[in-house]
Amino acid sequence: MAMPEFQVHQPKTVEDVLDLLGRHRSSVKLLCGGTDLLIKMRAGAQTPEHLVSLNRVAGLKTISYAGGDGLVIGGAARISQVGKTAEVRRLYPGLAHACSVMATVQIRNMGTVAGNLVNAAPSADTAAPLLAYGASLVAVERGGRRQIKLVDFFTGPGLTVLEPGEMVEAIRVPDVSPRSGSCYLRLSARSKVDIAAVGVAGFLNLDLEGKVIRCRLALGSVAPTPLRCPEAEQILEGQTPDEKLIAQAAAACVRASRPIDDLRATAAYRRAMVQVLAQRVLTQSLDMAKGGTP
């Protein structure tokens, strides 16, 4: 396929971005890293007539953390920048891991976390950890701004609740309380340049006695969208986790999954791996939570 024809707009402010999105509403896409979009366009899978670039918009790349408020990732913040941010590495190790191992160095330098989410691949590496951390998106459009919980964001492969004319201005991740632990594990046959065949992310927060106050578990690549596992979370919440309980929670994760056979793995393998990875994720998260420092 030859690359389809289109026009590129390079606004400098969010207001101008929103104006352009509104004006070309019928056939427009936001461009930032372009690492997913341009491949789809060359394959003819997307044919927008207008691309609105975020690369010259001031202020969208900021990554900030404040105790109590949590982490805010700007809509144009690069995956590699997020992965390198000290607070992310310290407090959100699952996200930091996803941001340091997915795709390639070059793609991480180009691609954005927001783009990874908006692209809505079932295998999106940042989705599972962000789900586990309870993240929300701040979506803006002309004359409006709303917060969308990530758990409500994905509606299908490549599909989200984002309206035409809306853009993700930032990703907000709640602060991490003491006695928390979290982790993201992904599997693929090759260490890099790969799409995860299965990804599992977990977050645990313990009380002083070691009971689980809050648990979030999320899966990637095993359903049409990245997803949370409420049943598994409830098994652990209010309990003191042990090996048996962790295995039960992992089994609930398997029940939540709806994997398919594809090039990268069979459904049977994926189901088995959800069990194995969920156990490992929970065990590691628990160790971290018990260690007192997240």
Partner: peptide, 27 residues
């Protein structure tokens, strides 16, 4: 890791280096 995967129509399915997995420096 490496394999050319075909469907029942004789079409090769993994036509990118993303899915034709040759070892990287880390492997």
């Amino acid at each position: 890791m490496e394999n050319l995967i075909m469907d029942d129509k004789g079409r090769t399915l993994n036509t990118t280096f993303l899915d034709y997995k040759m070892p990287t420096a880390e492997d």
